[in-house]
Design a protein around this nucleic acid. Sequence first.
DNA 1: ACAAAATAAGTGTATATACTCATAAATCAA
DNA 2: TTGATTTATGAGTATATACACTTATTTTGT
Lengths: 150, 150
Amino acid sequence: MSIYTYFVAMPSPDRCSCHGLRKATRHLTQFYDQRLASVGLSIGQYALLGRLAAHGPIALGAFAAIMAMDRTTLGRNLQPLERDGLAAISPDPADRRSRLLALTPEGQARLAAARPLWTAAQDDLEARFGADRTQALRLLVAELLATDLA
Amino acid sequence: MSIYTYFVAMPSPDRCSCHGLRKATRHLTQFYDQRLASVGLSIGQYALLGRLAAHGPIALGAFAAIMAMDRTTLGRNLQPLERDGLAAISPDPADRRSRLLALTPEGQARLAAARPLWTAAQDDLEARFGADRTQALRLLVAELLATDLA
DNA sequence: ACAAAATAAGTGTATATACTCATAAATCAA
DNA sequence: TTGATTTATGAGTATATACACTTATTTTGT
């Protein structure tokens, strides 16, 4: 543990809403990533597989919208998952421009293996940050996401 | 505007705290990035320069702690700023392991040019998302950042 | 003084993010 | 029908993020 740790022990609320959110996201992402590392998934990959399981075979653009992710970002993020056989992309017979994304059996197995680790991480977060604040944060970020900023 | 946009118009609060936070951060980052694009800075770069202006010449590790950023991430993020002459790294005479990061006059000028755009973005966010919710979110993410999750 | 431990930083590698541009296919309008 | 437009996607480029490993330097314990 570095001495620099003490400098951030008591941060003042950030004047910049975006910078504060970005810092907190890095913090939380590292926490979840560490909890999932033993099954070989990041929290981003876990979220992709989980949502994909729920939405079945789906076009890339539609899935990017569900994930609130740039279309090209989704494409890049899928490459390691496809390479490792966790997700598969096939042509859409109904529209030859479109390509359908689907979870493979391997992807389902990996997701099932990760789920208890994710649940434990969620519980640990609530225990450390507080159930009320965790709930409030979840609600606020969902509302922010639904806010049109363009 | 794609038809997919309608799929995300009314999101349910995310079960995964991390995924929700990550989506909202992408959303907000794109908003700020677009507002700052005309001066050639991303919100991440703006935050770096702004904090650097406040903390003067400072060692890389100490600055990474202030930014709540991984040390190696900071190093990579500094490369374009150094290349463009906005920040400069010099050896620390007191400790030859350490290197001191400082804002250049060019960096100060760029920061000054960006500041009104950032202020306008902050104001727009508050107008659209609501001052009370913006304030609450800022406080919550600061508290989350201060929470030890290890 | 010197060997061991701690510290500061860089490099290699891999994934994450998104902009611009290009391509192909479907839709629409005259 | 056919030419213009919209839509779905991929490729190129650049920055963002962080882990594991390495190197150089300082500090510390004896």
